[in-house]
Design a protein around this nucleic acid. Structure first.
Lengths: 161, 161
DNA sequence: CATGACTATACACGCTGCTGCATACTGATC
DNA sequence: GATCAGTATGCAGCAGCGTGTATAGTCATG
């Protein structure tokens, strides 16, 4: 294994992948490999396959043609943050959990509240009305009048406490 | 090596460390180990030593006494985010950098803009007037009228591009 | 059903971060 | 200067992630 790569982060590669799909009508993963290469990013077909999956890309039929091109499915993504991803984010960044009434207060390291809130939002956690994030604090509003306790327990459990 | 630990994240342990220091007048790292243990977190003196350093704790003299107790130095921390930490954060989360006039536009994965902005703020990067973070975008305002270009280059360089 | 193009995946492996153990270092006290 | 309490750190090991290689699976076409 050369492992020449690791020069760019996975996040950046997947971002570029999105741009490539938006700008070119690609029909195969090998094409993506080449296009990424022209952007200075090296990756193999295997990696592209995994990226496509993670980014939520699908092959769609081009109207008026029988070609299948890759495209990123925008909306459904937001609902489908995988459980173990949420578990990783919370386990890593959640530092404390408390509650009062229907509000759960989640503490995080400074500046990290939005990452946690975003993960919670996208995970479609049961019984969550909404979230607000400050700098190091996330408020989760429960649907139930006194639902804070149960929700806090659930969050704490996911965070691995 | 037992390695029974790793049950709690480093972030959480350090958060607890802060609470412990605030609530108890501790004079030795061994005491901290014990206090953490009562909170259900196991760590050795070596780890506590490293945590204290990372958190920016110092030993201060108790007024009217000759005891030295640990305390967290609040303010200086914000100025002193180490260079390689910034490098890690940017390298991991910055996905694209652009500029116009005196504004640098940094793109990040969804929900991660605040982590990046927070790291930038705390790093006291040269020539930065301020930052604003949305969901996946950070705006950096340069001090110089046309400083965007240079600043973008600097940010890109730190991010490893 | 054979073939070929394309994609997904089992496997192995390197890298990095975190941690404990053992030990070197430091500073105070006598 | 010897001793001792307390702290920092070199070293090694482990875990998890990300990735490439090789290969198995899938699907369309003839």
């Amino acid at each position: 294994m050369s492992y020449s790569g690791a020069r760019v982060s996975k996040a950046r590669r997947q971002h570029l992948l999105g741009r490539v799909l938006a700008e070119h009508a690609v029909t195969s993963q090998e094409q993506i490999v080449e296009l990424l290469a022209t952007e200075g990013v090296t990756a193999t077909q295997a990696t592209v396959s995994r990226d496509l999956e993670e980014v939520g890309a699908v092959k769609v039929r081009v109207p008026g043609s029988d070609r299948l091109v890759y495209a990123i499915a925008e909306l459904p993504r937001d609902q489908l943050l995988p459980e173990d991803h949420l578990r990783r984010v919370l386990g890593e960044w959640v530092v404390d959990v408390a509650f009062s009434g229907n509000i759960v207060v989640v503490r995080t390291p400074p500046g990290s509240a939005h990452v946690v809130a975003s993960a919670l939002d996208r995970s479609a956690l049961e019984g969550v009305l909404g979230t607000v994030a400050g700098d190091d604090t996330v408020l989760i509003v429960s649907e139930e009048p006194r639902g804070g306790k149960a929700l806090a327990a659930r969050v704490g459990e996911i965070a691995g406490r």
